[in-house]
Design a binder for these strands. Structure first.
Lengths: 375, 375
DNA sequence: CTGAAAGCGCTTACAG
DNA sequence: CTGAAAGCGCTTACAG
């Protein structure tokens, strides 16, 4: 069955296509008579306006593109989800694209969105802003960055405080006596990958922890690189006592490695993740993470974009990131059956020697409880 | 900057729009001269064909709709991901829509896809096939069901063996001595929700386990209903010794409750989940699940659809589902000394995002340890 | 191989 | 309030 056209409706209603169009699009200048007849005809024919034809004629397509970097990453799935909700409430259609952490695929999707004349684009960008991203700007298509930005490209964005988040994580670990902290960094082709790495190095330096470059591994925000990174770091001649990963998937990868190697968390190794996902709270021990707000991020991004579409001036937003301390971080293990860490020439490591070793600590707690129970 | 049109290109190249169009769309009947001049003009102007105009003129839009029921559900995120990969390889654009487990939103998105004249639709359907789904069929738009089906609607589908999966799970639990098995079912508005429930009841009956209807709770495939379901079941006067949940999110919810109440898995309670997600392998103990293959599901669905678009005959596919036994299932507990259920009104607020109540957890652990220490 | 022309299904000044 | 007509940017028989 061919879908009915405006002409079919007009003919059945006995009016011109102009009138039919006005009725159907809610134009005020229509008679009651026309309205009822056109409405009847439309329902009878099951009329569905052709969106292609409409947007060819009109300036706007009422659709926006949302390009996430990896839909399998719960953080971006949630951004996609709230972005979609927000867009729908604003009467906008979303074309959801998954760049799959590939600049090439990102460019393909941008081309597609431009071909479809999306009114605007929300993107978690990748790369240096050459490729198709440049065309978007040249064409003046409204653009909003989410989570990430591109150096030297001035575009409104919703990001979060990567520096603060990492700084808190490192401070927490150093406070627990960790001197050698392994960092599974994100891809340096992303701003979050870069920012978190810089933040890490800054914090490490500031706190006088071990600046050994071998403690830094560049991953790609996927589980497999978390696995590779953790293996690399654990296999170092002088391995770290704590691991910090720059996103949730790499954190999961690192946890897999610890599980495989029967490394006890936090007794043998402290773990800090980035991005709080459901499962982190359920793990035993639950994972200490740097948490920020993907739901709010996706929502704000679309709100920013709709404002831009309406010609309003907008400001970038930097959301909070904060450390949520759970059970996966503990005092740096003293019973390291590995070579002792190289002492720093500058300052002595914080004195954790006054504290009981973790297994003793755990024991002590039990003894306390036994005492309490028996009393 | 206005984006260049075919006419601009034609004018600059000194040819007709017809010739320009032929060159740009790779039509063979073009001279070398025309080809080079049009190509040059196109790149110089940064020409991007208007997809709306093209598909208005052509029969096909080269785009398909993919409607998943919840993009936050890792199972559907993976279906979306592979569907997108497969479509891209076939030169098709995907419009990804998130029905958010709502029939109303599903219908909105179907309307949208029809308005945009999608060539075909892949959908994880909901409801009874009234609403917009009926229009899709009436219009003859190629349709493929993924994961779910609709009763009485004859549409090619990629599903998995719900009956076999549930049967294996129940058999496993019964084999471990469980007689009272709690089931957190999926929404009965979905075929998977219904099929898994029927399969559960069949298996329970077959194995002579307890058919108490109070052991069945209808959830909605989301975390929060897993929480509610687990609480309901654990609060029964005679609670189950094992819990089976019909999807991964409700399983996570049930796990949250066990964690909050310091219920030891599998000693106090065996848990079987449905859909294998990354985190299930990392939990301690790792979760026994019914596993099927979302990646293959998404891939096959798009392959089926592209065949239909090419006018080929297609057959539905039922993929395997199999039980993966891990540590979360064990012998039915004989020492049913689980603390009496806390009355609902005094229970911790139902905030699954909050931290588990550590004192509860600590208490149970200590009791165990005390027992061990004293023995 | 090429161009003039029709047309895809709408919307919207323009004139009444 | 209404209709005739132009036009959005393409593609494609049709005739040459």
């Amino acid at each position: 069955m061919r879908t009915a056209t405006l002409q079919d409706v007009a003919k059945l209603a006995g009016v011109s296509t102009a009138t039919a169009s006005r009725v159907l699009s809610g134009h005020p200048a229509t008679s009651v008579d026309a309205r009822t007849r056109v409405a009847e005809a439309a329902t009878e024919l099951g009329f569905r306006p052709n969106a292609q034809a409409r947007s060819l004629r009109k300036a706007r397509t009422e659709s926006i593109g949302v390009v996430v970097s990896d839909i399998l990453n719960p953080f971006f799935a949630e951004i996609a989800h709230t972005a979609e909700q927000t867009a729908r409430e604003a009467g906008l259609t979303i074309m959801l694209c998954n760049a799959n952490e590939s600049t090439e695929q990102q460019d393909r999707y941008i081309d597609l969105l431009l071909a479809h004349r999306a009114d605007g684009i929300v993107i978690a960008p990748q790369g240096d802003g050459s490729g198709s991203l440049r065309d978007v700007l040249k064409l003046g298509v409204p653009l909003v960055f989410v989570d990430r930005t591109v150096d030297g490209v001035d575009v409104p964005s919703i990001t979060s405080d990567n520096f603060g988040g990492i700084a808190q994580a490192v401070e927490h670990l150093v406070g627990l006596g960790h001197r050698r902290i392994g960092f599974i960094a994100g891809p340096q082709a992303t701003s979050t990958g870069r920012d978190r790495l810089v933040a890490f190095r800054d914090a490490i330096e500031k706190h006088g922890a071990d600046q050994d470059m071998a403690l830094i591994y560049e991953g790609d925000f996927r589980v497999s690189s978390g696995v590779a990174g953790a293996r690399h770091l654990l296999d170092l001649a002088c391995p770290p006592t704590a691991l910090l990963a720059a996103d949730s998937l790499m954190t999961l990868g690192a946890l897999h490695v610890c599980q495989d190697r029967a490394i006890s968390i936090p007794d043998d190794m402290s773990i800090v993740g980035y991005d709080d996902i459901e499962a982190f709270r359920l793990l035993d021990p639950p994972i200490t993470v740097v948490s920020h707000d993907p739901a709010r991020t996706g929502e704000l991004a679309v709100e920013l974009l709709t404002k831009m579409l309406d010609g309003e001036k907008v400001e970038s937003v930097v959301l909070d990131a904060q450390l949520v301390v759970r059970g996966s971080t503990g005092p740096a293990s003293l019973r390291r059956d590995v070579p002792a860490p190289v002492p720093l020439e500058t300052e002595a490591p914080p004195d954790v020697r006054g504290l009981p070793a973790p297994h003793l600590l755990a024991h002590a707690v039990h003894v306390d409880d036994v005492a309490r129970l028996l009393s």
